[in-house]
Design a protein around this nucleic acid. Structure first.
Ligand code: SF4
Ligand code: SF4
Lengths: 143, 143
DNA sequence: ACAAAATCAGATTTTTTTATCTGATTAAAG
DNA sequence: CTTTAATCAGATAAAAAAATCTGATTTTGT
């Protein structure tokens, strides 16, 4: 199957987007996130754990614990989440996976693909969670 | 890991590109393709088998057998290969895999992603193997 | 006719990804 | 202090994708 983000990454993006839509300062449990987004609870939990290490979300243990953003939404971009989970490999490796690829012998897709890849990168880099908040909240309310 | 095409699809594209670069009428064995592209031989073989069913390549059995394009390179587009192997799902399903997604409540990426997806589609649809042949041959000679 | 070299078909193995389970730790609340 | 509800950590299981193996069939050339 053709895929862009791994499941892990999809879920991570969804979860962080979810966190960016709640009241600042509030905390939500992985259970709530899992239920709202229809993701296996333990999986969400694991992913958020790894994002905690990356400094994107922060966690609070114990009763009434849960997750929240670790920094202001104005300082988090979607690319940060992708980088933390899937890495940025896709943005500097080639679509076709040709061996021994050098700029001297570009494959037929090189140019166009490069352009597209840059646009994708910009899409994920351009706006912060802050700027996306309006749309995000609408989306989350509809779940 | 972030991926665009499955390995199968990558290999399929590479192999068909390879076939489009040889002399018209010639036939090459899966063994040669595998060696040149550094792909497991049986895997190439399997993928080309499936592309045979899709009518993109044709195969000749027996000694001195092998594979070749099934139609003129002017009638094959990259998207045809992708469609045959990975399907076109990616072009009408959403990046983030949100459940219950309706146009009423677009996620923050909807618009930009849609645009990008269309461009990707056009990239794979726009040119035929014929038009790519120049670059393809250069690439193949460098392997 | 026979041997060699190839595809074909399908089973099997290995690896990676996705998901689940279990127990420990932590912290709030009664 | 004890109960409860949460994260955390790491092992394990299940599913999917990638790769390999095996044997049959087909065709060419000797
Ligand atoms: S030439 Fe460029 S686009 Fe093509 S396979 Fe190599 S790196 Fe990728
Ligand atoms: S709103 Fe659009 S882009 Fe966003 S998840 Fe849904 S279909 Fe995908």
């Amino acid at each position: 199957m053709t895929v862009i983000f791994s499941k892990k990454c999809e879920y991570g993006l969804q979860a962080v987007l979810y966190l960016s839509a709640i009241e600042p300062g509030q905390i939500v449990s992985s259970d709530e996130i899992a239920k709202k987004l229809g993701i296996p609870k333990e999986f969400v939990s694991k992913i958020l754990q790894s994002l905690t290490e990356s400094g994107i979300v922060s966690s609070k243990k114990g009763k009434a614990g849960g997750f929240s953003l670790a920094k202001e939404p104005g300082k988090i971009r979607l690319i940060d989440i992708v980088a933390a989970i899937d890495g940025l490999g896709i943005f500097n490796s080639c679509v076709l996976g040709f061996p021994q690829c050098s700029p001297d012998h570009p494959c037929p897709l090189h140019e166009k693909w490069g352009k597209l890849r840059t646009e994708a990168y910009e899409m994920l880099t351009g706006e912060t969670l802050d700027e996306l908040r309006g749309k995000t909240m609408k989306k989350m309310k509809s779940l």
